Simulated assay, not measured.
Amino acid sequence: MRAGVRAEAAKVLTLSTPEAKVAGTQAVYQRWLDGLLTPESGMLVLPNQPGRPSKPVLISPQEVPRRRLNTPEGRAALIHAIAHIEFNAIDLALDAVARFDGMPESYYADWLRVAAEEALHFSLLQGHLQTLGYDYGDFPAHRGLWDMADRTRHDVLDRMALVPRLLEARGLDATPGIQARLTQVGDLAAVSILDVVLRDEIGHVAIGNRWYHWLCEQRGLAPLPTFRDLLDRYQAPRQTGVPNREARRLAGFNDEELAVLLDYWEG
């Protein structure tokens, strides 16, 4: 008899150390690929917060200090910040598996793969951070990454709209600029890691897009006005800067959706 994949994802979600969470995520994904797990129905009791290590110290985004990349500490702080995002992304993907029942089997396959790829990203960034003489937890990190996941815990459509399509898609816009800055200071190893991250994140946002549109179709909703309504209803954070149109198109955004996003950001 196959075990329930959602319960297995929930167990990994509660693990607190990075090493345990990365290993647990990879193990659950491999068991899924081996056909040993199956999606089970019914609500699971999940923690309000995923398991987290005692460090890094979590502070508000406004309190995170800015550091210059031309210093070793500043470069390490940037890599640490990206690693923190990827560590949280593991939890976001595991929660998408564990929290929402009644979805097609391919939904769970998609988000388990995302979780495993986010675990790889974290491991690559943590390893690079260690070559700089630091480790994950050595710098403070911001605590706002889980907020939208918590707020959308009651509806998988809202989650797909506002976590992968909105918050995680920010990485598509930010990564090329970060790579340019790292190139200037000669950290080509970090640039290569971010090539992997950007490639995979395009796929992750595409998964969010696909399931958002599938859910809209199932509920008889028009995707574009529904998305705009959700942005307003949740008072979703606005973004500054220029969207990476090429990456967003590869991830499934069309010109109308990009126009809605830009209008919201500028509003």
Rank of each mutant, 00 (worst) to 15 (best):
Y108W: 05
A116I: 06
G74Q: 10
R153E: 06
I85A: 12
A81D: 13
D155G: 00
R99W: 01
Q130F: 11
G51P: 04
D95I: 05
G133L: 13
L129T: 07
L58I: 13
L124Y: 12
D138L: 12
F100D: 03
D155N: 13
L124W: 10
R67A: 14
E73L: 11
E73S: 12
D155K: 06
A115K: 05
Q49T: 15
D101N: 01
D135F: 08
E105A: 02
A76I: 05
G144N: 13
R151H: 10
A77N: 01
N48R: 14
P61K: 13
N70H: 15
T131R: 14
Q130D: 10
Q126P: 01
I59L: 14
L157S: 05
N70Y: 15
N88L: 09
L58K: 11
L132F: 10
Y107P: 05
R143H: 11
L69P: 01
S54L: 15
R99I: 01
T71E: 02
W146D: 08
R143F: 06
R99E: 05
A115W: 07
W146T: 04
P53A: 13
P65N: 10
Y136W: 12
P53Q: 11
R151V: 09
H154C: 00
I59T: 11
A98W: 03
R75I: 05
I82L: 12
Q130V: 12
A141H: 03
A109D: 07
R159M: 04
E117C: 02
W111H: 03
Q49N: 15
N70S: 14
L112F: 05
R143Q: 11
Y107L: 02
D135N: 12
D158M: 07
S106P: 00
R113D: 06
D138E: 12
G127P: 08
D110I: 03
